[in-house]
């Protein structure tokens, strides 16, 4: 690195380094160093759900080469990974496992919703077994649009994640706070998927419904005509 670029980009803590020391001394913040290490070693979980997983594999393969970002180390175990790429349609049958995997990941952990399905249900949103967006259950950091997103789009999403990491500060991030981060309750496969956080609302909803066959989502303003 040249002298010019060292001073403004790394030395941004407000200290003026004397010119004779600029070749060997750099003053920066702990946050910067911390984040730099973190942003170049985001290990994704080897975790594919559907079509998007194929594009994720292609991103990791030779042509797009995820290794350029230090992200080629795909870990099959959630315990060793930093990033969960939710690559595909999230179904009701699968969401308990996804939440469980998310809980098993150590902090700091990031979640990327890859593709339309993981972001909001996508083309399959109306399906009876489809969760319309993984963010209904676990927090998402980056959404990548596309069906499926091309490898370029995924790479763009990963760079956005890096930018997000750059803005973190170790004094503020939640995993260095005193309080313990509670695990997300794992949904249960009942007559329909049950999110334990919604128990009260579910009881409410089940008690006031009149016709058992009618859908819950039937709007009050009955626009839906009979077939």
């Amino acid at each position: 690195m040249t002298e010019k670029t060292v001073t403004p980009t790394v030395n941004s803590a407000g200290y003026d380094v004397p010119p004779e020391l600029r070749q060997s001394v750099a003053i920066t913040t702990l946050d910067k160093i911390w984040n730099m290490g973190r942003r170049y070693s985001v290990w994704p979980m080897m975790f594919g759900l559907a079509c998007c997983a194929i594009e994720m594999i292609c991103t990791a393969a030779s042509r797009y080469d995820l290794a350029r970002f230090g992200m080629e180390v795909m870990r099959p175990s959630p315990r060793q990974s930093d990033l969960m790429i939710v690559s595909g349609t999230v179904t009701k049958k699968m969401i308990p496992q996804i939440v469980r995997l998310y809980n098993q990941m150590p902090e700091p952990k990031y979640v990327m919703a890859m593709g339309a399905c993981a972001s909001g249900g996508g083309p399959f949103k109306e399906g009876y077994n489809v969760v319309s967006g993984v963010d209904q259950y676990i927090p998402v950091d980056v959404y990548v649009p596309g069906c499926p997103p091309t490898p370029q789009a995924l790479l763009h999403g990963l760079m956005k994640l890096q930018e997000k990491i750059d803005r973190e500060s170790i004094t503020k991030v939640r995993w260095y706070q005193k309080d313990e981060i509670p695990a997300i309750p794992v949904p249960i496969l009942g007559p329909d998927i049950i999110d334990p956080r919604d128990n009260a609302a579910i009881r409410e909803m089940a008690s006031r419904k009149a016709a058992p066959a009618a859908p819950a989502a039937q709007p009050e303003t009955a626009e839906a005509p009979a077939a």
Binding site: G121, D195, A206, K209
Partner: peptide
């Protein structure tokens, strides 16, 4: 009512 893609028996 739950804001999700769910419905339950009465």
């Amino acid at each position: 009512p739950v804001g999700k893609n769910v419905s339950y028996p009465q």
